[in-house]
């Protein structure tokens, strides 16, 4: 098999899997759009990391992205806590201002005489085809760390997500739990930036979890399903874009994920719309039959 396609397949399914798993918590905590803000906020971090080190290493870029994404998240939280401004506006501001600042830095970098700078714009729209072994290695490391963190703090995250007050009352360090969960989410997002790009990364966080939510009410099942949906979309998106010419990977993955969401919204047992409609029709039929029988007797 083609080496490039192989790398892209591994990278994309990894990104789908990890962002799917972490996305479950974001969706359940009604913080889906934080992912959008984090991924946009990462851009100036990547640019600054390059400007400071002048090196093109995925690890350094990801470190810069993580720091910037982290600062953005903290700013959103601080603005919401201390001012009249609501979360939606805070997210929108961080997203657009950080991204704008990132653009300024990117244009500055493009004016630099160094030749070694082309890789940076890949983070804007994602460019899975340029994934190298080095990148995939870095992504693997981040993925393992993220999933291990999820596994390690499973009980705490679960309690925190569903009943924050109870967690506080039990004496759990709620603030620290939130910090770790946010850190893991930032890691998951930064991991996927090179593959799907800043703009579509939020869909990677939201879509698999939104689909998984329709099939189950159990957290562990939702997280597993979400990770599977993410990985399957990543894998099939990478394959499709590998064999069809001029088909960008990121958008293809997002469309496959969205198709899974649509199917889930319509057909999932209990929660699906078609399912509900069918159920209701059965009930009406049954009721009518009973009434008829009563009428006869």
């Amino acid at each position: 098999m083609d080496y490039t396609i192989f790398m892209v397949m591994i990278g994309s399914s990894l990104v789908g899997c990890v962002s799917g798993a972490l996305g479950s918590f974001a969706v359940l905590r009604k913080q889906s759009l934080l992912g959008d803000a984090i991924s946009h906020a990462a851009l100036p971090g990547i640019a600054l990391a390059f400007l400071i080190t002048m090196a093109k290493s995925p690890m350094i870029f990801m470190a810069g992205a993580m720091i910037a994404g982290w600062i953005g998240t903290m700013l959103v939280m601080a603005i919401v806590r201390h001012t009249v401004i609501k979360e939606d506006a805070a997210l929108g501001m961080i997203l657009s201002v950080f991204f704008g600042f990132g653009l300024v830095l990117l244009t500055l970098i493009q004016r630099l005489p160094t030749a070694n700078k082309s890789g940076l714009t890949h983070y804007l729209f994602g460019s899975a085809a340029t994934l190298l072994l080095e990148d995939v290695k870095a992504m693997c490391l981040m993925g393992v760390v993220t999933l291990a963190g999820l596994f390690l703090f499973w009980k705490e995250f679960k309690l925190f997500t569903f009943d924050k007050d109870y967690a506080t009352a039990l004496g759990f360090p709620v603030k620290r739990i939130e910090l770790i969960l946010t850190l893991l989410t930032v890691t998951a997002i930064v991991m996927g930036l090179q593959t799907v790009g800043v703009i579509l990364m939020s869909a990677m966080i939201i879509a698999p979890a939104a689909a998984a939510r329709q099939w189950t009410d159990r957290l562990w099942l939702m997280v597993v399903l979400s990770a599977v949906f993410g990985a399957v979309s990543g894998l099939s998106g990478a394959l499709l874009s590998g064999f069809v010419a001029q088909l960008p990977t990121g958008p293809t993955i997002v469309l496959i994920m969205s198709a899974i969401v649509l199917i889930s919204l319509l057909f999932a047992p209990n929660r699906g719309m078609i399912w509900e409609w069918f159920q209701r029709r059965q009930e009406t039929k049954l009721l009518r039959q009973k009434l008829m029988e009563k009428h006869k007797s």
Partner: peptide, 9 residues
Amino acid sequence: LKEDAAIGL
């Protein structure tokens, strides 16, 4: 789905 997820989808 909640509002935030719907917007983001």
